[in-house]
Design a protein around this nucleic acid. Sequence first.
RNA 1: GGCGGCAUAGCCAAACGGUAAGGCGGCGGUCUGCAAAACCGCUAUUUAUCGGUUCGACUCCGGUUGCCGCCUCCA
Length: 446
Amino acid sequence: MIKFFNTLSGKKEVFKPLKEGNVSIYVCGMTVQNRPHLGHMRAYITADLIRRVFEYNGYTVKMIQNFTDIDDKVIERSKEFGMDYRVFGEQYIKEYIDSSMKMNILQPYYYPRATQHIDEIINLVEKLIEKGYAYVAEGDVYYKTEMFKDYGKLSGKKIEDLRSGARIEINPKKKNPLDFTLWKGAKEGEPYWYSPWGKGRPGWHIECSAMSMKYLGETFDIHAGGTDLIFPHHENEIAQSEAATGKPFANYWIHNEMLRIKGEKMSKSLSNFLAVSDILKEISPNALRLYYYRTHFRSPLEYDENSLQEASSSFSRIERFISENASGNDLDEELFDKLIETLNDNFNTPKTLGLIFAAIKDANNGIKGKSLTANTVKKALNILGFELKEERKNAISEKVIDGIVAIRDKMRAEKQFQYADMIREELNKLNIEILDSKNGTKWRIK
RNA sequence: GGCGGCAUAGCCAAACGGUAAGGCGGCGGUCUGCAAAACCGCUAUUUAUCGGUUCGACUCCGGUUGCCGCCUCCA
């Protein structure tokens, strides 16, 4: 049984799939106007976690994650760089996919792009016009917000409250300031596609409706993304899709909280972001994943440099425990069941990690078997998407180092510490660390 | 101005009605020729604050203060 918080109901609910044993998930992907940053990665790690938990529970997951590769900012910024908007966006798509592979994120069933679904988008807009939910105004098409009786059901906003808001844009073509763009007429020099309303491009929200319905059906299980998308993006997706089909759009909505930096949201427009690919030069993918997992995905995460380092130290503790103790296939079922139960309850990674560390301590204290615990933790880490280090030693060099270490031990026995220390230092320069203990000397690659 | 969320040790962070997990750091110790690593122990009489409900509250209700998100492009 998997329970999680559904933004639509505002409550934690037991998940019931549309089709037994299957889950369809749509993840709102990036608008490719800048480099993928730590905040984006939080959303995609959350989605990856959710997917992995479902898969562990025996579900067949069909996950779709889009790239929005056409919008005002993409056009604007590609012009600044003097690049074709397609080439411009492509570099960020590539950077995202590279980073996600390094992070061991399971790749979605498909990465649809807005520009590859213009026909579907046009069809959807036509349908909305036919049904009276949209109107044409000088080459643009707008959605008539007040026509949709459930408008605001996801974000908990009321149309009257929004209307009194101080920051609604003024656009004389709109009948109502809350109406949003479905199709936008192209200005001189902008990319365009032909449509019944003239040359233009899709508005921001419509691509997600078109693509999710194409790949997952008119109603699907879960729609995921960051909390910043709840309004207006997801609210508008619901309005468009449900108006067009007359059916519920997504049954469950999962939103991850924001990553902050110095008290502000990390975002492209605030240009206070740290690119994921840069961070991955500093710390390992596992450490970064653990960094995210330390905080529940529904809580804001405040970035500071030390916390990445902390996560790194934390992960080393687990990794060492496993590499020194895991052998065989026995499983501490009580512990393992507890870990799974915790994950199945709103994907509670911080609590899961707490249980793991507590179990390691128990094992070190001899309360439970070390190997038993190590195997169990290893299995849990696998489900969580950590990739445990491959043995980086190889047979020949291993023997050479063993030989050197043996000579050094002999010197130590004869109290020739000066040379013994020299060997230790030289090996250290090669990133080989000497570990002296009463049970003999071991070494490892740092 | 409207809507919503959050406040737990030096820092990060669980618990969500049954008497405060865990991590990082710090301190002390075991081991060691020394060091490092590893491991062990200690590190919140108390959960922003004031009141209420309850046998019992970090957990529920109300007030106050502070922070954040959304209402505009955003994961």
